Simulated scan of single mutants.
Amino acid sequence: MTHDERISILLVDDQPLTRVGFGLLFGAEPDMEVVGEASDGVEAIRQARRLRPRVVLMDVRMPVMDGVEATGAIVAAVPESRVLILTTFDLDEYAFDGLRAGASGFLLKNALPADLLSAIRTVAAGDAVVAPRVTRRLLETVAHRLPSSSGAVADSRLDRLTPRERDILIEVALGKSNTEIAADLFLSENTVKSHFKHVLAKLGLRDRVQAVIFAYENGLA
């Protein structure tokens, strides 16, 4: 595997021992390479701009600037970089804020090494790593923080969707897998995947997580 084919990773955590541990884990993988480290959000943004990593492994609680603010800045400045949030609790509101800021998913800090490695590869491939039902549970926990849809003007991007694509978006927001959506709507799973790709493209969203948040914010779920 050449240098360019490896998944470049930026480690962001204010604990040096944590960064060392992650570095050893990823360094043992032939398809991964740690290209930089940062101990706070400001340094993370600077390093991301300079190194343009495929994946940023981001802690949320850090000095100077937290991981949520840093995530938003990195996603805006380096759109090819995918951010994976690390959090202590699976229903941590920091994790939700990180997803809204543009992260492609979140993992618990005590996740098994195999799960972390799988998540890195999944995010690097352009998918989200938060399971649909976990995303729904997270959103329901912090639903009171979402803007009320009553009296609000729906996002004009919704008009770009066909009725079938809107159905797919609603099903995704309800936490259903592609297999479940296919059964509900009497479609093949490949057709569901194709429709959902069109949904993401028309709405300008990056992955399933952002689609769920968009649907909730626009009162579709």
Rank of each mutant, 00 (worst) to 15 (best):
A114Q: 08
H144W: 14
S118Q: 15
V35R: 02
A131Q: 11
M32H: 02
R50I: 03
L138Y: 06
F96N: 12
E29F: 06
L10N: 00
P53L: 03
T2D: 14
L24C: 10
E37N: 06
V83C: 12
S150Q: 06
K193W: 01
L116G: 02
G102N: 07
L139A: 03
L51K: 05
E69R: 14
E33W: 04
Y94R: 13
R157Y: 12
A125W: 07
A44W: 10
A211T: 10
V20A: 04
L203Q: 02
R19L: 10
H195Y: 09
G151N: 05
D66P: 07
V142D: 02
R82P: 00
V209Q: 12
V68Y: 15
R145K: 13
V55K: 02
T122W: 00
G151C: 04
I170Y: 02
V123M: 01
L84E: 00
V12A: 01
R145E: 11
D155M: 13
V42M: 11
A154K: 11
S81P: 11
V192G: 09
S104F: 12
L17G: 12
L187F: 13
L10V: 06
F96I: 07
A211L: 05
R50V: 00
A70F: 06
V12C: 01
V60C: 11
I45P: 03
L10P: 01
L138A: 02
G102T: 03
H195M: 03
S118E: 13
P30Y: 13
I181G: 10
A215H: 06
A143P: 05
D59I: 03
G23N: 07
P30R: 08
L24S: 15
L86I: 01
S118D: 15
R137A: 15
R136K: 12
M65E: 07
V64K: 13
R206N: 09
A173C: 15
A95N: 07
R166E: 12
K193N: 14
L203A: 11
V55S: 00
V60R: 07
A124R: 01
P16A: 05
L11W: 03
K193H: 10
P163M: 02
A154F: 09
S188L: 04
L112D: 14
R46D: 05
V42I: 10
G102S: 07
L187S: 05
Q15V: 13
K176W: 10
V134K: 14
K193M: 09
E140I: 05
V153A: 14
V153Y: 09
A211M: 09
E217D: 13
H198I: 11
A114C: 05
R164S: 12
E43Y: 04
P53M: 04
D14G: 02
S39L: 05
H198C: 10
I120G: 00
L169Y: 04
S104C: 14
A183Y: 14
V56S: 02
L84T: 04
L220P: 10
